[in-house]
Design a protein around this nucleic acid. Sequence first.
DNA 1: TTCCCTGCAAAGCATTTGCATCAAA
DNA 2: TTTGATGCAAATGCTTTGCAGGGAA
Lengths: 154, 154
Amino acid sequence: MARLASGEAEALLGSFREWLRRHGQPVTRQRDQVAAVVLGSTDHLSVEQIQERLQAQGATVGLATVYRTLDLLVQSGMVRGHDFGQRSRRYEPMGPGSVHEHLICTRCGKVEEFTHERLERMLPIIADEYGFQPDRHRVEIYGVCRECQRRVLG
Amino acid sequence: MARLASGEAEALLGSFREWLRRHGQPVTRQRDQVAAVVLGSTDHLSVEQIQERLQAQGATVGLATVYRTLDLLVQSGMVRGHDFGQRSRRYEPMGPGSVHEHLICTRCGKVEEFTHERLERMLPIIADEYGFQPDRHRVEIYGVCRECQRRVLG
DNA sequence: TTCCCTGCAAAGCATTTGCATCAAA
DNA sequence: TTTGATGCAAATGCTTTGCAGGGAA
């Protein structure tokens, strides 16, 4: 249950509130609570996990509202959604400069992050070569994590 | 509705039959028909499209069997499944040496392929650096394709 | 009052599963 | 003949939607 430096999470939450106002959207208690959970975590949360964390802190937010708020967070560019081939979608905060990609263990489902500057530079260039105006990308490497490799050998 | 060189599609179909036999799986009419459609296309087909093409050629295959056969095709390594964030999963044949990645247009949904040797070399190396035993990967660039860029300007 | 966000329940949809039947080996 | 693949329909599970109720301006 990793967390961002609390200052950073606060800043992201502030940006989301600002984004809502700029788009004529009310800042409600529920939106604030959902955003706080997602923006304050460094995990890749499922909607189920988000609900659990909300309940754990005594917040009551309907499932539909969680989905609707996640849409807003994704639209605002502050949250990224992923489909790692598991049952449900995962969400993670995308603070400024938090560009990264993922390593997914096909044994235990663990998701690890990595950054690679050269890779990030290459992809937009490749898109250009094909006349594509790149917006975002996704790099996922599937395999067996260190721990699961040991488990098999052991 | 692009197609592989017919000889290549035939060869892939033959390999699938062989794979089935080697795994003690019967080669049925339905499996053959589904495999022929998927292995004979260069598009990224949805299950719906696969059904349509089967019907167009007078083949009757139940929906459940299409899904079950796709599982086998994926297990055999001859077909790759994708989730491009559209309603349903897409499937494409993976003949030997057909390593490639995807450019997805967020306006019109078009999926284009690209290959990049250096990129393919990099990813397993990155995985190694993190102790991951890489198996496969997925690189997707989302953006606006050439045609949709024109459409907006026009 | 007016607007529209929220929450509940119902609906949607792609995918999976149970089971009787039928075809492959 | 035996086995298990197939097809239909029902079930599943995540996500979305309809709509009445409620809070804010």
